[in-house]
Design a protein around this nucleic acid. Sequence first.
DNA 1: TCAATAATTCAAGAGTCGTTGAGATAATGG
DNA 2: CCATTATCTCAACGACTCTTGAATTATTGA
Lengths: 120, 120
Amino acid sequence: MHEKQALDAFAALSQETRLRIVRLLVTAGPEGMSAGAIGEAMDGASSSRMSFHLSHLEQAGLVESRREGRSIIYSAVLTALSSLVEFLMRDCCHGHPEVCNPAMAALSSCCEPEKGAPHV
Amino acid sequence: MHEKQALDAFAALSQETRLRIVRLLVTAGPEGMSAGAIGEAMDGASSSRMSFHLSHLEQAGLVESRREGRSIIYSAVLTALSSLVEFLMRDCCHGHPEVCNPAMAALSSCCEPEKGAPHV
DNA sequence: TCAATAATTCAAGAGTCGTTGAGATAATGG
DNA sequence: CCATTATCTCAACGACTCTTGAATTATTGA
């Protein structure tokens, strides 16, 4: 991940509706959700408003879309999110492991590695 | 970290000059840098421009300042950065450890835990 | 106290962002 | 082929963001 991509991703995530869309799609998993369904989940936002934010997120590489019949299905791009974390971490840890350690702790508790944690 | 704080942090980091300031201050360490020195590092940006971006970053909680003689010294708030990572991770890992594992790998390689990695 | 240095504050202006509503495009079923 | 459903595109408008330059505040040393 380069600076420009990180800037785009941060800009995309700095808008309330878009941040909520990303969170929703991550929990929705790989099967994703239709634009209409996402709009309903966003306190019934208009279709043009959804279109605006979804294409913004797609432009930033945080979500992807596929057509399925009349609907267009959006899903989160999980690798983009981990790349962003990696970018933040690479920036932050230069000689300062005290930044990474709390983040790593949060990470491992959140992922709950199934017994016998793998180390890289 | 709550949604509002995360939104503010993402907005702060979505601006090129501010992202560079944060990276610079993180590598500068706890002793920090004066506003003037940061401005010189930012291709000689004007003092009012620096003031604008630095107070934006301070508002978002990503940097803090102290006066030292005539200068005002800024330094990165490392815990804010790890909280942001934690927020992203908590969002992303709900049932999807495949997001966290690459991030965790990046994290541990970047931090280079000194032999006998601690686990939380 | 005065001049010099370091940084902030403020107002103005150009540019970007997000919402709205109307209209266009795409796919389906009768 | 037509009506319906689902979504996108576009123009317009208000709101916000960033830069600039001038004026202001704070600190220091002579």
